[in-house]
């Protein structure tokens, strides 16, 4: 089911410079409005979480004066918790959209790992990234390496962060609260103690940062050197193609 919203821009009427008739795939609407807005809300939430989280573990230098004059750690922790809730709500909405949105919305949740073509493309793109292959292939949705990093590093990483994050938050809200009952009560025993849980929360946070670095670099590189649009797509929703030929995942798209 495709839910159209008022925010969706009209499909480009004028053919792109590479329009029909010369073997170019016309622009395809890939990222619907909710996906695009989620992407940026989520990115800001992650940035806020990484910075505030770092300062919770390693607080800034001591402030002088009376304790009643300041609430610095309070604000840092508030930022972390507020951004955490925004991220959780965003992820819940995004997960919902994976099922009710277009086919592309589901891809990072369920990568087509059972098809031989997917792995053939993965191998090709891998060779391209290690400079053994000159040209990348074209994709309507994502290239398979992007899908794999988004699925494993981002999706599983964020899920881990949400669960451990709520477990740590439940320690503060206390017994009897839903955070404690649903998360803290069983997650802390898995990690043995709260201190270990903190350690793993930190490690996973760094892996999210590494994902962000790879994700942004991959996007910049493919925008410049690849055969399809990247940045304008996450802004407008439309994928355009810079060279002729049918995209690899056209049959699924």
């Amino acid at each position: 089911m495709v839910i159209a919203t008022d925010f969706d821009p009209p499909p480009p009427t004028a053919p792109k410079p590479n329009g029909n008739g010369n073997g170019f795939q016309p622009a395809i609407y890939v990222y619907e409005f909710p996906v695009r807005i989620w992407h940026f809300v989520n990115a800001f939430a992650i940035a806020a979480l990484l910075v505030s989280g770092y300062f919770i573990g390693s607080p800034p230098p001591t402030l002088s004066g009376e304790a009643s004059d300041h609430f610095l750690m309070g604000y840092i922790r508030f930022t972390h918790f507020a951004a955490g809730y925004i991220l959780i709500i965003g992820m819940a909405a995004r997960t919902y959209w994976a099922f009710v949105g277009n086919k592309h919305a589901l891809e990072i949740f369920a990568p087509p790992i059972l098809t031989a073509k997917f792995w053939d493309n993965t191998w090709h793109e891998f060779k391209r990234y290690v400079f053994l292959e000159k040209e990348g292939r074209k994709y309507v949705c994502h290239n398979p390496i992007a899908v794999l990093t988004m699925h494993f590093m981002f999706l599983w990483g964020i899920t881990f962060m949400i669960f451990t994050g709520l477990a740590l938050y439940g320690e503060g809200t206390g017994m009897g609260t839903w955070q404690h009952t649903l998360f803290t009560s069983w997650i802390i025993p898995i990690f043995g103690n709260s201190q270990n849980l903190h350690t793993f929360h930190h490690l996973a946070a760094w892996s999210i940062l590494i994902f962000v670095m790879i994700h942004v670099y991959g996007a910049v590189r493919d925008e410049l050197l690849g055969h399809q649009s990247i940045f304008s797509t996450i802004v407008s929703g439309y994928r355009t193609f810079k060279s002729p030929g049918k995209p690899e995942d056209m049959d699924r798209a």
């Binding site: 573990g57 201190q195 903190h198 670095m213």
Partner: peptide
């Protein structure tokens, strides 16, 4: 130490040092 040292990686460092090193290598 506020952050626990992790010994599993051979070098004894805390999660933030390991994470920042990994991020530096990837960068």
């Amino acid at each position: 130490d506020r952050l626990t040292n992790i010994k599993q990686f051979g070098v004894e460092e805390n999660a933030d040092v390991i994470g920042a090193t990994a991020a530096g290598v990837v960068g």
